[in-house]
Design a binder for these strands. Structure first.
Lengths: 137, 137
DNA sequence: GTTGTTGCAAAGAATTTGCAGTCTA
DNA sequence: TAGACTGCAAATTCTTTGCAACAAC
């Protein structure tokens, strides 16, 4: 296989993801990377992100048919707010019972992904207030 | 709100999904619908599928950034084979423990989606055989 | 006859890719 | 200096949309 090289672009993209506490899209990573390395291109960002994912250095999570990236590579799940679109990490124990149920049929489970959709605390609060106002009319 | 009309196209798309035991993409639904109604267009299939989903008559599941559709609208989850791409329904008990853990922070969980990735029985068997053959060389 | 729907084709959005020039090792 | 990598723009893929013709009710 071919030998990989260290380039400014790779280092920058990696650094951007590592210093992001949200779950940026490729476009967002691109925006942030450009601040450090203005000449970087979106295509390169896509290429590097893909490489980092396949090397297991970062993780990809797909929300609404769009890739988002995160520095955490350990096993965890996500909550997605339908109002503000915020993605938040969720720690859950592996559901052994469920896995075994799937595997019993001869299936091999290699990865599990849980996604929780709803409203984050802030949006829930906002919407409750709104609902009450509407109800009063 | 505007009154909906019953058209051949809507009836056909609905019938196709109802009689599908796999999880067809829009394109696949289109292919199947064309057999019944050759003049139907892909755009219409997309429009009708979207409408059926929003009416709660069918469900949408997104795999690999692509929409698939299914007749089951009750709560269940999915297993996706990384080899053959097959999507299979998985029955799991709601993980109350996990939900409560998420909700404790003030979050409102409205929907939960579990996806299990791996190998289906057939592909697991095939790959095992292959692996053994490779190992013997 | 209204007006919701369709077919068509063009537009969009996200991502990938071919290529010639550039830079790392 | 070989060849991995980049920037750029064109191409792909899936999906949505504008519009004039069509067809339910």
């Amino acid at each position: 296989m071919k030998k990989k090289r260290n380039t400014k672009q790779k280092a920058t993209v990696y650094r951007v993801v590592q210093s992001s506490n949200d779950h940026p899209t490729a476009e967002k990573v691109y925006e942030r990377a450009k601040k450090e390395l203005p000449s970087i291109s979106l295509g390169t960002v896509y290429r590097v992100l893909k490489e980092l994912v396949s090397e297991g250095k970062i993780k990809e999570i797909i929300v609404n048919k769009q890739s988002h990236f995160e520095k955490r590579t350990d096993h965890h799940h996500h909550f997605i707010c339908r109002e503000c679109g915020k993605i938040e990490d969720v720690e859950t124990p592996l559901c052994r019972y469920t896995c075994r149920k799937v595997e019993k049929k001869g299936y091999v489970v290699e990865d599990i992904e849980y996604k929780f959709y709803g409203l984050c605390d802030k949006c829930a609060q906002k919407l409750n207030i709104k609902e009450k106002e509407v109800a009063q009319v």
